[in-house]
Amino acid sequence: MYAFELVRPATVAEAVAALAEDGAQALGGGQTLIPTLKARLAMPEKLVSLGGIAELRGVTVEGDEVRIGGGTPHATVAHEVAKAYPALASLAERIGDPHVRNRGTIGGSLANNDPSACYPAAALASGATIVTNKREIAADDYFQGMFATALDEGEIITEVIFPIPQAAHYEKIRQPASRFPLVAVFVAKFADGVRVAVTGAAENGVFRWTEAEEALSADFSPSAVEGLSADSDGMIGDMHGTPEYRAHLIGVMTRRAVAAAG
């Protein structure tokens, strides 16, 4: 790692002030950022740790929505939303490993927007709202391609609001080495329609599979998406799978997610 200063603000306001400085970067749980720093692929002058900010942590369930503080670790989410939003809890408890889940945060995951991360699929399929220190951003506007989001420099995710669907499921096939999703699909059925978000597959990161959404909104059953196949154009191709394989898996994962969501 290159040398940097590490600061631990106690409030969002202090963090925002610290992040306003040149060369400052936010540090969430660090589960992706620290390995990146070790490889010297990033060179911040100052790291602003969000780990000491109590107001960023916590889960509340209110009516038909779940609100999760941006600094909440995956393990807490898995535990706290198990009743209110089991599909989201199930996603959280399958991220990385137990140690990563004790450190990694939802805000960190969404801010990083790794094309193979789990949380973006849940946020997009749920039609979540990303709340920052400045504004509220709809998930549909938030994800802007691989590692790209609507966040401005120094903007911090303070909360994520998930509407709770009638039925949902997250189906994933793991990349054998990293254990990130090779392809994973989050299906969420709401009163006004079905949303299907795909992660791990596309070069541009998480996306909605609109053809499947239409078919499932008309008939929420595995057979509705039988024979439907995603386009391999723009899919990731690497040693773990060709674009064609990933496109194929999107169909399989979607069918299985619908079957499991019931």
Binding site: L6, R8, G30, Q31, I34, H99, V100
Partner: peptide
Amino acid sequence: SIKSCNIFALE
């Protein structure tokens, strides 16, 4: 339980 190689001492 956490991975001590993936957290700064100051944290």
